[in-house]
Simulated assay, not measured.
Amino acid sequence: MSGRQTSFADYGTLPSALLWDGGLLFIPLWVVTEITLDQTFHLPAIGSSGLRAIAPVADATVRLRGLLVGPERFAWKMALEMQAEAAQRGSAAAALTGALAGAVGAPGLAVGGLVLATSMTIRTDMQVKQLTFTATSARREALDVSMTLEHLPRPSPLGKLLDVASLGVGALADFG
């Protein structure tokens, strides 16, 4: 470990997860100890119409557990809190992709909420449902963080495209 990394945990080159609002605020989560992806699939109504095909057929919840380490841990804590609150009002991703999608005449490509990138999945349209921070005497210079994010997608083909892209990200992380 270099001199700057004074925590017992190594947070070197690549973060385990990245939470992005679509604008300038990237929050790297360096030490993620657990990622859980829960998906609930909806059964279609008997005799449902073709319009059902464009509606989301699954709900997804992502839970992350990890550490905010080093002297920046309080800044990352505040950034996570600010980002969670700001996403409730509309993220930079929603404004940017909405404007771009409208300009090219493809409203189905707009996203909202936060973007979560991990080796397991890349999800747009995420909202922070719960954030928990814990400080213990056993972990100096670290805050335990756990968060629950809900996937609240707009009907669009972009979500499936990003799921396919996450396969490549996962493969790169395995070889990195």
Rank of each mutant, 00 (worst) to 15 (best):
residue 114 L to G: 05
residue 93 A to G: 14
residue 99 A to V: 13
residue 128 V to Y: 09
residue 124 T to R: 07
residue 82 M to S: 14
residue 111 V to L: 08
residue 83 Q to R: 04
residue 130 Q to S: 12
residue 99 A to W: 07
residue 87 A to L: 09
residue 123 R to F: 02
residue 107 P to M: 04
residue 106 A to D: 07
residue 122 I to H: 05
residue 116 L to E: 04
residue 87 A to Q: 09
residue 93 A to D: 10
residue 104 V to A: 05
residue 104 V to G: 01
residue 98 G to V: 11
residue 83 Q to V: 13
residue 102 G to A: 15
residue 113 G to I: 03
residue 90 G to E: 15
residue 85 E to P: 01
residue 87 A to R: 05
residue 112 G to K: 13
residue 102 G to C: 08
residue 116 L to V: 10
residue 121 T to N: 12
residue 93 A to N: 12
residue 98 G to R: 07
residue 99 A to I: 14
residue 85 E to R: 13
residue 94 A to F: 03
residue 110 A to D: 03
residue 99 A to K: 10
residue 102 G to E: 11
residue 91 S to F: 03
residue 114 L to K: 07
residue 107 P to E: 05
residue 112 G to R: 14
residue 109 L to P: 00
residue 115 V to W: 00
residue 106 A to M: 09
residue 122 I to Q: 09
residue 98 G to S: 13
residue 128 V to M: 10
residue 89 R to P: 00
residue 124 T to H: 09
residue 118 T to A: 02
residue 89 R to I: 03
residue 125 D to C: 06
residue 95 A to P: 03
residue 125 D to T: 06
residue 123 R to H: 10
residue 113 G to A: 01
residue 117 A to D: 00
residue 108 G to H: 08
residue 90 G to P: 07
residue 121 T to Q: 12
residue 130 Q to I: 01
residue 99 A to H: 05
residue 117 A to F: 01
residue 109 L to R: 12
residue 128 V to G: 01
residue 129 K to Y: 08
residue 113 G to N: 07
residue 90 G to T: 14
residue 127 Q to D: 02
residue 130 Q to K: 15
residue 120 M to L: 11
residue 107 P to F: 02
residue 109 L to W: 05
residue 92 A to L: 11
residue 94 A to K: 11
residue 101 A to H: 03
residue 121 T to I: 11
residue 110 A to I: 02
residue 125 D to G: 06
residue 93 A to C: 14
residue 98 G to Q: 06
residue 111 V to N: 07
residue 87 A to W: 02
residue 113 G to Y: 01
residue 123 R to T: 03
residue 84 A to C: 03
residue 87 A to V: 07
residue 99 A to C: 01
residue 111 V to C: 08
residue 110 A to Q: 13
residue 84 A to G: 03
residue 124 T to E: 09
residue 118 T to K: 09
residue 97 T to C: 13
residue 118 T to G: 00
residue 80 L to D: 08
residue 128 V to P: 04
residue 118 T to Q: 09
residue 88 Q to M: 13
residue 120 M to K: 11
residue 101 A to D: 13
residue 104 V to W: 06
residue 127 Q to N: 07
residue 82 M to F: 08
residue 106 A to G: 00
residue 88 Q to E: 15
residue 118 T to C: 06
